[in-house]
Design a protein around this nucleic acid. Structure first.
Lengths: 204, 204, 204, 204
DNA sequence: AATGAATGAGAATTCATTCAT
DNA sequence: TATGAATGAATTCTCATTCAT
């Protein structure tokens, strides 16, 4: 029975803005969605958007991904993987990305669009990815003799490349997802792809 | 004679517009380049651009890719591949894409940007790709018993998927190209990737 | 008792708003300070500002100057000057303005800015000044034969002109204040300036 | 009989913008005039304003005063004054400012408003004034023994101060111009004021 | 055929003000 | 009384497109 206009629940409004924005992006493309569109579509005033996201569109994307990236990379599931078992790690990681994909297709497409015109967002995202895989690479090299011979930098680069490859497959809008009749099959394909690629990339 | 000189000037102007546009896109991103920017940068008038491309930016991209796609997919090199030898075909095709990539990075990035906000361009591009691979699939199935068991649709979809995958690797701006110290290595990786993937995708 | 404490809080809040506003104006200029800025900077709510100053910025300035002008023009120091001694009066008046200037630079700059875009404020200020000098002029003419020959209107106008001139020197932001190494020198200059000007303006 | 819409006369349009803007400022105050007001009032499109003045209001003022300042300070009349005669110079200079004032009251008020919120404009204006008087001061010191004893810097500062003082009198909106029934009288007053002030400021 | 001045819809953003809590 | 979320008109500025010359 609480009035919509004076809802004291900030998070509700912020989520409304997120959802509206990402839905609009899915329908019309990032660059064809304006802050005014968001306001109209969400039935809130333009001022409200700028209250929560003072720099407009960029801010919405940035803040959303700062949160969601943090959450994803620091999720229980990823943290708790026994890092010296690389198969487990890869499989778990792909599953994690895949779960993300299912529920966040709109958000991720938005993100891919946004980093194309926002260098700062792109750099910060790159750094986060790098640090995440640096940590993984270091643990792997400590725990597993096979990886000792591969330079740390190369290992990190390989991980990042494959991370991007998986994302490209999951989110690239030219993909023909219908190829994989079941999710299992897609995950299986991706895992095989990664294992095969890693071998290729890391051989001396 | 006068007409020849004339049409020569015309083509020069069109090429100038193409080059200027794609260079600007590389520097500033598709959505940050306006028709006025192109005119200023190319030192021609905005009116001239609208003479040759009455619908502006969209038209430039669309016409460019109509031409270049036509040229690429119908190139001597691809047409002359003996289509019943699938290995040759794949290797040749990847090399062709790779050559393209080297010299046309700007154009392709532009294209990727453009189709994100232009549904018509996207659909027409999809159709062209589909028709190209439909033709290839039909020839393959005629010439090669192994492919008879695979439904035509599925074969086409697999080809399209892999075509997109290769492009994603070549053009995705998050890629870590430094991984592949030599072009040979990248082409080798891509070929292996495609062969491996085809096996996976086409097994019953 | 509670009411006393209450009104004390009220005055404190009003003073807080005054101080915050004028400090912000000094830093950023009148037109770049918003009511929301004041609220944030003073750490009170925007609602509180509108409680005490229902018309916002204009009201703050207007009310402040209504008070301070009243106080200044009716100050003990000015009232008690023996008005038939014009030298004393002028010197005292300049000193009064100067004291004001030292401690209220921000307020005065704010005021100068404000009256540029608020005609009502400007008119009311003009009227107050006029009435003040009308009173002085009348007293002077009664007490001092020399002034009898000068029309009352002209005397008032001369006073107002010189009042504005002094203020212009004190507050005009293009002034080169470093010229006057000591305050004494500036006051001396101003007094001479006024005496000289009065002679010029009042000669028949 | 030339069409208004496609007038090839840039300067006409630029002058129209200048005149419209400065007239509006006189009526409503600098901060209450928007670029849209100017466009509507001048019956041109907002785009036209931004074609000639890409940074909007600031640019209009800046460009106008860059031109007019240049013109004024380099005018035949000022340049040709025999600089070693200080009386002549002062009188001529005041007359020049006064002529300016008569025809450009609106422009000057606009300028005074504008520099309050545009630091760059303010600095560039200050520099121009400084350089102008530096040149005058150097010539005076060369030609006239009396000025040798006064440090160059001090001489410049005094000139600048007096220049500002005159402008304040001419343009300050609180001034009571009616005091001076004839222009001659005002110029006479200003000259006396400046001579008197210079003596005071330059005495050792 | 070529030019570029002119247009105006629409995007991003600010800010005085209101009012439910 | 005090709060601050919410509003939306108004502002600055951009850009695709037109059309007289």
């Amino acid at each position: 029975m609480s009035s919509k206009k004076f809802s004291r629940n900030k998070q509700e409004k912020i989520d409304l803005i997120y959802n509206t924005f990402f839905n609009l992006i899915l329908k019309r493309g990032y660059h064809n969605v304006s802050t005014n569109h968001i306001a109209k579509s969400a039935k809130i005033s333009i001022g409200t958007i700028y209250k929560y996201f003072p720099k407009g569109k960029e801010d919405i994307i940035r803040k959303y991904f700062e949160d969601s990236m943090e959450t994803m990379l620091n999720s229980e599931e990823l943290i708790s993987i026994n890092s010296n078992n690389i198969r487990d790690f890869l499989n778990q990681f792909i599953l994690e990305l895949f779960k993300n994909h299912e529920e966040k297709k709109g958000y991720n497409l938005a993100f891919r669009s946004a980093i194309q015109s926002d260098k700062a967002l792109y750099e910060s995202h790159k750094e986060k990815i790098f640090n995440f895989f640096k940590d993984r690479a270091q643990k792997l090299r400590k725990a597993n003799k096979n990886f000792n011979e591969i330079p740390e930098e190369r290992l990190i680069e390989a991980f990042i490349f494959l991370y991007n490859l998986i994302n490209a497959i999951l989110y690239h809008h030219l993909s023909v997802m219908e190829l994989f009749d079941a999710d299992d099959k897609l995950v299986e394909y991706l895992t095989n792809l990664v294992v095969f690629s890693l071998k290729f990339l890391l051989k001396p």
